[in-house]
Design a protein around this nucleic acid. Structure first.
Lengths: 156, 156
DNA sequence: GCATCACTCGTACCAAAGTATGATTTTACG
DNA sequence: CGTAAAATCATACTTTGGTACGAGTGATGC
């Protein structure tokens, strides 16, 4: 990467050199021509001035470090993107994998029967998981469970 | 603001004009001096070139528009501060004041009996409100009601 | 091999949630 | 003043949620 950059910079410097050389030849030619016409040196100087002025401007434009103005713009990020699961809390409460699945469906508004179908288990199994969850979360209903789970950042 | 900017720009242009005029006088003086020395025109041209090259570079440096880089900085804004109640949705769904109170307690994880105590009404009244809420929110359980109400930004 | 844990399922029972219907009282508005 | 919407309550009923207890299975690790 760095060698490439140096090489590019070298190429640019070479280009400037060639341009300058060409310019010098052009000037010599101009000088030769205008020497014939007397008192035309002012015109010659004018052309020369414009040329070098332009050249200087161009070179400066090429070489000057871009003046950067950094504008910071606040971007609102919804919590849904910022959210990260607090796996620590899950472990601390001793919530198992299956129980966590149930918790997610629970928070999604599914009934026990729905979850049973979704997870291919019986209704009683789901009830057991739910009951165990309530004990671990220290709540007494699914609505409270949802609230607490969100508080603990267990679910989004 | 705009008049100030224009005035500043004008001042700058005026400055450039003065510098140029001074330079022209200087050149004339140089020309006068070097005419005495024969074949010294090359030196004269060299000085002239360097002068204008520098001038061009300087002018370019002054005039180049600063490149503006907008950096978007991600700033997390918590939803709690961003949140505003969507009263429009409440009206659209025809949710009454009392029903909304019930909805808030509902989302807080309270049971029907709890809400009855809290609102000083009977259990059946709460049930009626809850049932009406479900119809208006088009859901079948309190957990779904909470989810939908949050979706619609009716509750935080 | 045995203990432990996660997962599964069943039964039984009670509490709570949810529905349906009807009725009364308040409140707000033209 | 009358009326419509909101709020209240009751009763009866069905469904769902939640608890308690027991029990079988499979995987893991010492």
């Amino acid at each position: 990467m760095k060698s490439l950059k140096l090489s590019k910079r070298f190429q640019r410097v070479l280009l400037y050199g060639i341009v300058l050389a060409t310019l010098v030849f052009f000037l010599k030619w101009l000088q030769w021509n205008f020497l014939i016409i007397d008192n035309a040196i002012d015109i010659y100087i004018g052309i020369l001035a414009i040329l070098f002025l332009t050249l200087g401007a161009w070179v400066a434009n090429q070489l000057i470090k871009p003046k950067t103005i950094i504008v910071e713009r606040e971007v609102s990020i919804s919590d849904s993107k910022t959210f990260s699961i607090n796996e620590n809390a899950i472990k601390r409460l001793g919530i198992s994998r299956r129980e966590y699945e149930v918790l997610q469906l629970l928070a999604g508004g599914h009934s026990n029967a729905d979850m049973a179908s979704e997870l291919f288990v019986s209704l009683s199994t789901v009830k057991t998981h739910v009951s165990n969850l309530f004990q671990k979360l220290d709540v007494k209903s699914r609505t409270q469970a949802i609230g607490k789970a969100k508080e603990l950042k267990i679910i989004p």
